[in-house]
Write a protein that binds this DNA or RNA. Structure first.
Lengths: 149, 149
DNA sequence: TGAATTTACTATGCATGCATAATATAATTT
DNA sequence: AAATTATATTATGCATGCATAGTAAATTCA
């Protein structure tokens, strides 16, 4: 059996987490992306949309669609930002706050479950490697197709 | 600064790889998923569709759509499987074979780039941890919401 | 053997990422 | 101040995963 490539491992693990998170969120009529957003929104006071994208690691355009869905589902309310006519402030509704707690627990439980399975040392190494991969990609030092005929 | 959760690290790394792969594939008018499929298809002889899904780690239904696109782009031809009236055999066209080589190189270059960045030992640990995560998820031992009120 | 079940797809709809384009407002430059 | 540029957001379309439903063929069972 051929050795699995790094991309394959990352992808499998992430697809697995995705499936699991969506299942858990689905039990409460929510979704994974909504859960991530909920967690990133401050429970009290309006959270500027601008800070959310970077915090979640997604593009503003991806976030925008998620927020729209969330507002339609009654989880948040988008209010104009009085300090910047272009921006919006995200406020959690009571329902949003409730779902935020649930989403947080799902993430925490998963994190704990992994920590019970792997040693702290191995986990640190795992974090180090994923960060290296990210840096590698962001550094744009991989000019892959330039090296290919 | 709060520590990043495991899911966040996995997600960021995978999203990064996705972006990079799609860029590389895009240079040749292809896409990441198409590249993965090309790599999994045997270059000579028909590959039964049944073996592709598991090899790629995706559901048959996801694969089906990708294969349809690939056929439309002239990368493959789907022929009925003479041994099983339900199944299909995937054949690469000459163009498909050419693109398969390119896709393989992209994956190999990335793999090599990571290996140049992290030690063999750390990489082994990384693989061990991702595999543990996969097992954890598949074992269904995380009854997350059962533990939440 | 005929009926019931399983398997291999395909079609479709939703979720969620990105990219591009459009719009409105802010900030900067001249 | 007017013109230019940058930023914040939305709308849309594509890519790619899953789930569900439907169809045809194979397999199993009674």
């Amino acid at each position: 059996m051929k050795e699995k490539t790094i991309d394959y491992l990352l992808r499998s693990a992430w697809l697995g987490v995705t499936k699991m998170y969506n299942e858990e969120a689905g039990k409460k009529g929510s979704t994974m992306a909504t859960g991530f957003a909920l967690i990133s929104i401050e429970p009290e006071g309006g959270t500027p949309s601008t800070s959310l994208g970077p915090r979640m690691g997604i593009e503003a355009t991806s976030l925008s669609r998620t927020l729209k869905t969330m507002e339609e589902k009654g989880l948040i309310i988008r209010k104009p930002n009085p300090l910047d006519g272009r921006g919006v402030l995200i406020h959690l509704t009571p329902f949003g706050k409730e779902m935020r707690e649930y989403s947080k627990q799902v993430v925490i439980r998963f994190d704990e479950a992994v920590k019970e399975t792997v040693s702290e040392e191995d986990l640190d190494t795992f974090k180090k490697v994923t960060n290296s991969i990210l840096e590698l990609i962001n550094s744009k030092k991989i000019y892959i197709s330039d090296k290919i005929s």
